[in-house]
Design a protein around this nucleic acid. Structure first.
Length: 285
DNA sequence: CTTATGCACGAAGTTACCTCA
DNA sequence: CGTGAGGTAACTTCGTGCATA
């Protein structure tokens, strides 16, 4: 008998995940194929290459959040095809999560020059939050900056988090340009984007570790049970041998093996009826 | 070619703050 | 209202790879 244990193969799904208890509405559901994050690196220049398939990260819907509406295309500047494909996918992904984002142009805000096409898509998160919470946080942060004493603790809005999540699905690491572009679009500091991605990778790894741990636990239980069964079978065989002193003296050609359970038994008339009525077949080798 | 140095980045661990039950 | 737990933004430390002198 052989037992194979394979870990880390993205092509293998963990079947027990299907039995994962229902997540609460607060949870981000997780279903992902692990790619090798370390496989994505700069290739000497400033280009990013990946030797592995992209990490597939599927998030279950969040708790109810404002409706997403795009009046202009969501752009991921690092994507080759910004007009269709990936950006559309990201957009629909956000829409599927029930998020609303508005563009600066939509709100008539003056965060970018009116004729600036390059910066035409900038998300206005503070206004659409439905409360002054975000504004207060920003103000508090700026106060802290002035005081220079306490540590800033900005809570990202749901929209910002969702946007970062979508970006993370595209790339779980950022090059400097991606970081700057994201920061610009989200009205965040590049450092904040960088930190968010670092923490996000850490959370992903932690989740995967938990999944692996659960898988190993189940493997351990299976092996323990199998070991118990084999021990019992060994005891039975020993008992059989003790009760039949001539058992081992039989010619080898008279040994038979049950094809289903692979238990060795004798084919002589002496053992007939003691094998549970199983048909015994002589082994050829 | 080898070595030392500085820089940038990510991982891991920790801290501090916030929210919620 | 106070409190503890959990989530997470921000920070610190360390290791690694790369460019350059």
């Amino acid at each position: 008998m052989e037992l194979a244990l394979s870990l880390g193969d993205p092509s293998n799904s963990f079947s027990f995940l299907d039995q994962t208890p229902n997540l609460s509405s607060k949870d981000l559901g997780f279903c992902m194929g692990l790619g090798n994050a370390a496989g994505t690196r700069r290739d000497g220049g400033n280009k990013w290459v990946s030797s592995d398939p992209p990490l597939q990260l599927d998030l279950l819907p969040l708790s109810p959040v404002p409706r997403l509406h795009f009046s202009s295309p969501l752009r991921f500047p690092w994507l080759a095809d910004n007009e269709t494909g990936a950006s559309e996918g990201a957009r629909s992904g956000l829409e599927a999560k029930g998020l609303r984002m508005v563009t600066v142009a939509d709100e008539g805000a003056a965060l970018s020059p009116p004729n600036s096409a390059a910066s035409s898509f900038q998300l206005d998160f503070g206004i659409r939050n439905g409360s002054n919470t975000r504004k207060r946080e920003v103000e508090r942060a700026s106060d802290d900056d002035e005081n220079g004493s306490t540590r800033k603790k900005l809570r990202l809005s749901k929209q910002q988090s969702a946007f970062l999540e979508e970006s993370f699905k595209q790339h779980n690491t950022l090059n400097p340009k991606q970081k700057l572009d994201l920061a610009k679009q989200l009205n965040l500091q590049p450092r904040q984007v960088e930190v968010w991605f670092q923490n996000r990778r850490a959370r992903t790894k932690l989740k995967q570790t938990e999944v692996d741990c659960e898988y190993l636990k189940r493997c351990c239980e299976t092996l323990t049970e199998e070991n118990r069964r084999l021990q019992k079978e060994l005891q039975e065989l020993r008992a059989l041998k003790a009760s039949q002193p001539f058992y081992m003296q039989l010619p080898a050609t008279t040994l038979t093996m049950c094809p289903s359970c692979e238990r060795v038994a004798t084919s002589s008339s002496a053992t007939a009826g003691k094998n549970g009525g199983l048909p015994l077949i002589k082994t050829s080798g």
